[in-house]
Nucleic acid binder design. Structure first.
Lengths: 213, 213
DNA sequence: AGCTAACCTGACCGCCCGGTCACGTTGGTG
DNA sequence: CACCAACGTGACCGGGCGGTCAGGTTAGCT
């Protein structure tokens, strides 16, 4: 499925270093956000700064590789939950997983929330995530577990929103996101309420053609 | 009320430049976030970079002055709505105003969402905003317009969360926040749902004594 | 073991940023 | 009008960043 490995005729230490580098970068980005210096990533991996650029052409490419990794994990999670018995708890579990991932990774929050930071490939993967979420949501919708006008894109967007709601409390109450996830779910099932305005696009494809003057 | 003016024995051009500077900084921070260079703020005001530091000791101080200005406006708005007839629509209007302000100001979002960026004075003002929101929420709660376990801090936190939910759509659908505000409000009134976990602290005072090693 | 191509390294470059300061300019007062 | 203190200015500084490259090192094949 996720074919980012491609270990063809590479030297042994190179594949080892690449693995170390990805692990170090994942941790560093999660902890400090996208602004973490390349030097610190290299240091965490026990390598020199130049080695980073031998594996990834730019910092953006390294970030994109890791974001794709995170997104693939979420997509896999959604696909797996699609086979669950109870579609309502499946959707709930998907959202719970998603918010938890966001809470543990600063760079992921920053990239998801700001389209201007996204590689083209990352945008594609986000669209795939919307599709997977739509499949889950659709099943829950048919069962009447969520109101009729909620889309998969809504669900994906809510992941970021729920985390952001709890984010200022993160140093004090790391689990506060559970409160706002519960609140959002209560809103999602409010079938008696009126229809929601401003339905979002189906696949969350956001172009940014506005190159500033 | 808000006593940040203090025009005592100042030269005429200085007060004029200070006003220009605050206007330019407000616009620049709103558009580009906290990372906007001081030089661009000075340029927008038609002044030199050094002049900025004659009025504010550091970039942080300038940012704090503007954030206090925004927070005061929201607090005033909440106090005014406290005298409205319908406490339910008053709360709704407060949240609508708040999210709209966030949608129009990148720096405000960044500061609200990340306690580590906040001046002590800004933290105090945020606590005051929580108090004002609690007063509004309390009135709505007594009337049964919102569920019992929603606090003013919840309402303030939701402002940031609702905006973040809609933020990725901002270039495409600038009004998308209305959808997620409606969704959140439906969750807030869901009186039949179970109690929410993890109640937040009353005043959102977040210390960050953890100076990293 | 010997050899080579692929790989790792860290000093180095250019850039941009926040902040400073000696100097020129100007508003207000007598 | 003359004077000066307060203010505006922009060249300058130190630091940190992403990214490069010539040269040392090593893995893997023969």
């Amino acid at each position: 499925m996720s074919g980012t490995t491609a270990t063809a005729g590479q030297r042994a230490d190179m594949v080892r270093n690449r693995r170390l580098l990805l692990e170090a970068a994942t941790a560093a980005f999660a902890e400090h956000g996208v602004d973490v210096p390349i030097g610190e990533i290299a240091q965490r991996a026990g390598l020199a700064k130049g080695t980073v650029f031998r594996h990834f052409a730019s910092k953006e490419d390294l970030l994109a590789a890791i974001m794709l990794q995170m997104l693939d994990r979420l997509i896999d999670s959604a696909d797996r939950l699609l086979g669950a018995d109870d579609s309502a708890t499946a959707l709930r579990e998907f959202m719970s997983d998603g918010v938890e991932v966001l809470a543990a990774d600063r760079a992921f929050c920053e990239v998801i929330g700001r389209p201007s930071l996204q590689h083209a490939e990352v945008r594609d993967r986000i669209a795939q995530l919307c599709d997977a979420a739509e499949a889950l949501t659709s099943r829950a919708r048919e069962r009447g577990a969520v109101r009729g006008d909620i889309t998969g894109t809504d669900v994906v967007l809510l992941l970021g929103g729920i985390h952001q709601t709890a984010a200022p409390l993160l140093p004090v109450q790391p689990q506060a996101w559970r409160r706002y996830l519960a609140l959002a779910l209560d809103g999602l099932v409010a079938t008696d309420a009126g229809p929601l305005p401003e339905p979002p696009p189906a696949r969350l494809e956001i172009a940014e053609p506005t190159t500033p003057s």
